[in-house]
Design a protein around this nucleic acid. Structure first.
Length: 508
RNA sequence: GGAGCGUUGGUCAAGGGGUUAAGACGCCUCCCUUUCACGGAGGAAUCACGGGUUCGAUUCCCGUACGCUCUACCA
């Protein structure tokens, strides 16, 4: 019995902010690893030097940290299979590529990008809009299959720029079992001779993923469904290099789709429809373009992760709220959907409101405070109490500002129109007297205030209900918020009286 | 164009030969609350289409349609 420890990896290329779908791939990797007592590895796929973006790698680490999905091994955390950055592993890829050439599974190709372009345009027809560098066209190109041995040797020794391409068999069926989709097969005649090693000596994804998965002893490989069409190349590479019996088990995850129409969710969709797509704020260093993330929008990591888990997976019980630990226990690949799921921002917000309600405020008090700081609102020691009072009406952490700022400062705006239509001299007199009574109130307590208020209403022969809304608007600024005497009690005698006076001024 | 993958309410989805086809989000109504929420009770809304197989298909099979992904010296 093989008792190989489960090892999974997330292998992003550091080209920008981490997208929803990327984080979900991380999550499924993480859940699967932890459930099986395995390791979760973060490997940086930075083989495309032209797409290097400073800060992107650090962003990925920070995102995983915020989500609570820390890798066991990574460029940052280290580990026995270092380095975890493909650019730092560059020398080892060439060896494997050369071996493939020697074994007849790959070949050198000397075609320039102009020549490739020319090939594509000359062979492009209506019936075949994108000609592939495949078993038929490779006969017409400049490669070690068409050139003489001497010529190839000469070109190589002269240092002529070249790539190494896989030589796909002409007539084979490549079949493998996907953990989510079951048996999947491709005919090799439909797949092209993918570049394995680029002219700059860097591997392409296709080569690197196979070699690194082997070297890092990856047992299960999860990735987005967009990779499915190139899976046969990877399977073939495993067969040629390390043996199919050592190949990790593949699982191609369904895509997260845009809410309107169809298609993969992109950052642009978020901009267009007004919701975040990246996990955290991202500033593109190339053009300073800013993109807001779920974190800065006021999402709790618990909610973000929970919401992501339910996009394409469920445990069949109807339960929707899960802690990370519960997810680790319940997760199973067999219950992951095959079809893509449209992202629904309304539902995402619902998850957040649920988590705001069930988490103790201590776990997000500091984050909420940053939203107050950003608005320049100074909070005081009743902050926790206030948060507790208004948490049920907040969907995002940023909502606390609108729901609670009046506890710490006078309302910025007073919705005087909410009381004006029913305002009259009797009420004016009532509040004038209420001020005097409040000034003399020895005990500034909820029950005392309410009692006093109601007795005075009775004395003035006004229904308390007709007076509550005006008082609320005076204290809060609008028709919302917790119990009005809770508010008065909490903001204190001085502020209460001052706000009533101020509003009275506006009303007369 | 080709290949691959997919298709249960508006969205996330359970179910899987016989069901009133769960549940959640959103929407609507009502209750609670002298506000707004929370909470509670209801409501509208669904098996892409066509053939089979079967006593019976949303479920199994085959087509069709539609959608998506890929089709780079990007991942």
């Amino acid at each position: 019995m093989s008792t190989n420890k489960v090892r999974v990896r997330f292998a992003p290329s550091p080209t920008g902010g981490l997208h929803l779908g990327g984080v979900r791939t991380v999550l499924f990797n993480y859940l699967f690893a932890k459930q099986n007592g395995g390791d979760f590895i973060l490997r940086i796929e930075d083989t495309d030097q032209t797409r290097f973006v400073p800060g992107a790698e650090e962003y990925i680490f920070n995102t995983l940290k915020w989500c609570g999905l820390e890798p066991d091994e990574s460029p940052l955390h280290g580990g026995p299979y270092a380095p975890y950055r493909q650019s730092e592993r560059k020398p080892m890829y060439r060896e494997y590529a050369e071996k493939l050439v020697q074994d007849g599974y790959a070949y050198y190709a000397f075609d320039t990008s102009e020549e490739l372009e020319e090939m594509r345009s000359t062979y492009k027809t209506e019936a075949n809009p994108s000609p592939q560098y495949n078993h038929v066209l490779r006969e017409k190109m400049r490669n070690s299959l068409t050139l003489s041995e001497d010529e190839v040797r000469r070109l190589l020794s002269e240092g002529a720029p070249h790539v190494i391409r896989i030589k796909l068999p002409m007539n084979e069926e490549v079949t493998f079992t996907d953990l989510i989709r079951g048996e999947v097969s491709f005919h090799t005649s439909q797949v092209d001779d993918k570049v394995l090693l680029k002219a700059d000596g860097m591997p392409t994804y296709h080569l690197a993923v196979v070699i690194d998965d082997y070297l890092m002893k990856i047992t299960h490989a999860f990735r987005g469904e967009e990779w499915l069409p190139s899976a046969p190349v990877h399977v073939l590479l495993w067969k040629y290099l390390f043996g199919l019996e050592n190949m990790p088990q593949w699982a191609h995850l369904p895509l997260i789709l845009k809410p309107d129409g169809n298609g993969k969710l992109s950052k642009r969709d978020g901009d267009r429809l007004g919701f975040p797509v990246f996990a955290m704020d991202w500033t593109d260093p190339r053009n300073n373009e800013q993109t807001t993330g779920f974190r800065e929008r006021g999402f709790l990591p618990e909610a973000f992760v929970n919401m992501l888990a339910m996009l394409g997976w469920n445990d069949g019980s109807g339960q929707e709220i899960f802690t990370l630990d519960e997810l680790v226990k319940s997760f199973s690949l067999s219950r992951v959907h095959k079809g893509g799921a449209k992202f629904d921002y309304e539902k995402a917000k619902w998850f957040n409101s649920e988590w705001i309600k069930r988490l103790p405020i201590a776990s997000y008090r500091d984050t909420v405070k940053t939203f107050f700081d950003a608005k320049g609102i100074v909070v005081d020691d009743k902050f926790d109490h206030v948060l507790e009072l208004v948490k049920d009406r907040c969907t995002l952490l940023s909502d606390f500002v609108a729901q609670a700022s009046f506890f710490f400062q006078n309302p910025v705006e007073i919705d005087i129109n909410a009381v004006k239509p029913k305002w009259d001299e009797k009420k004016q007199q009532f509040f004038a007297e209420l001020i005097r009574a409040f000034e003399l109130t020895p005990q500034w307590q909820h029950d005392d205030l309410e009692k006093e208020f109601k007795e005075m209403a009775a004395a003035h022969q006004i229904k308390p209900g007709d007076l509550m809304m005006p008082l609320r608007v005076m204290l809060v600024g609008g028709k919302f918020g917790p119990g009005v005497f809770d508010i008065a009690a909490l903001i204190g005698k001085e502020a209460t009286i001052a706000r009533i006076k101020h509003a009275l001024g506006l009303l007369s």
